[in-house]
Design a protein around this nucleic acid. Structure first.
Lengths: 247, 247
DNA sequence: CGACGTGTTGATTCCTGTCAATACTCGTGG
DNA sequence: CCACGAGTATTGACAGGAATCAACACGTCG
């Protein structure tokens, strides 16, 4: 583990890439100034653990760059990812001292942090923050429920296709080309994908090969995915049509 | 489907069985009066569908008596329960017009309802409601994440044991005997349990028989469960010890 | 009584997990 | 420069757990 320097820019809120999607999205300029005054940045390398389950967590944060994951581990080592935090997602529970899951930096990661107690105080004063946090939490709950359907009822192939479509969609909201091939880099190893999907990494690998063989995806290198026809991928997810933002 | 009369009592908020656990838990007496003014009760028989996925939902509600479930259905009929609402749980998204899941009365059910828009207005005026709703939503998110571990990584036997311990625990918070055998009625059919656990009803039945054969549970009739030794059941859940409120 | 809903149990299939071998990439160090 | 090892990924052989298909038991209600 080389200790390279992580060089993420540290922007002012007004220039922040997640300004309009994160927990601060609804804040007016005066509210934003108050947040600006108490925020601070932290960076982590891919693979680093941010906090262990049960540890005290004295801050909350927004993901600015990169991907973080929440995982639960059973005694015998079985692991299940229970949260995948992409840029603008919120990390932490304002009124809980400790966390219930391991939090890991899946890629190089930059967080915009707030000490927990000052943030809690701000929530009382600035309803826009609490409102936005409620909205985001409800969205996460909806996402968790989609995820439960995936884990409980979908086949391995459907799980992979669903996962790819989720990543493609979330990616598209930031990097919106609009038409033509959809292409993106996987932010997860095969093992992390397995943890996300409730599979083994061998099954993930096999199903990826299967989708490639059938022309649903193209693999350029191990991580770069090209989707020649998004509808074709959607057909493999098991979801009913037109559930998509894309397409 | 007989149209028997459901005779749930309609209490004043002060006497309400869920007064201190529901979304109104933090309300002061004056805030409670405002809620009291706009609340109304609805009752449903076991099996009735309350709303279909995609339908417009013009109210939000607290479960007062009984059990409701949220389920997602795939085109080919595969179903996954994604929410199990017990007394005091909250139903609906204040700032969403429609619901994403089928909502069904699993047992005879009484809801304490509020029309959505007036409730939304009240949330702005009474921070205690919004605060409590955020807290409850975060708790639900935690529960959903436990559930994801169950769906993704547990064996059929562990799923059943986990489910029984969850029901026993939630039941105990209302009907707290404190010691001796833990006993309760299952609020779900075998099929609904299967939908909850991501199994088939046959597997549910087999595993129930297995736990009975091994003395972990006793079955009195089809629905009444007696747990002679709660620790024995916990050993079967796959969770690490001391995660429990009971024990 | 017969129909229906609910639940149990058996026989068989098959999808995914397990165990194992191999390939590829990237640093490190001789 | 190449050998070596660690980390990541692919593929094969095989086993096992849960799904599927099917028969049957029990209680309730018309």
């Amino acid at each position: 583990m080389s200790s390279k320097q992580l060089a993420f820019p540290q922007s002012q809120c007004a220039d922040c890439p997640i300004r309009h999607r994160a927990v601060c999205a609804r804040c007016e300029t005066d509210e934003l100034e108050k947040l600006e005054a108490i925020k601070y940045y932290r960076s982590y390398e891919a693979g680093q653990t941010i906090i262990w389950a049960g540890d005290k967590m004295d801050f909350v944060a927004s993901v600015v760059h990169g991907v973080a994951s929440l995982t639960q581990t059973m005694e015998d080592g079985r692991r299940q990812m229970v949260g995948l935090l992409l840029p603008s997602d919120f990390l932490g529970r304002p009124n809980r001292e400790s966390v219930a899951y391991d939090v890991t930096a899946t890629t190089d990661l930059q967080l915009c942090c707030f000490r927990r107690v000052p943030f809690l105080d701000m929530m009382d004063d600035t309803p826009h923050i609490a409102q936005r946090l409620l909205e985001m939490t409800l969205d996460e709950l909806d996402a968790a429920r989609e995820w439960m359907l995936l884990l409980g009822r979908k086949t391995a192939r459907e799980k992979i296709a669903s996962f790819l479509s989720i990543i493609a969609r979330r990616d598209a909201t930031f990097n919106n080309s609009g038409h033509g091939d959809v292409a993106f880099d996987l932010p997860l190893t095969r093992e992390a994908m397995a943890d996300y999907l409730g599979l083994t990494l061998e099954t993930v690998s096999r199903q990826m090969s299967g989708l490639k063989r059938d022309g649903v995806i193209r693999l350029e290198g191990k991580r770069h995915i090209v989707i020649p026809d998004f509808d074709l991928l959607m057909d493999e997810t098991g979801d009913d049509a037109d559930g998509g933002i894309l397409s």
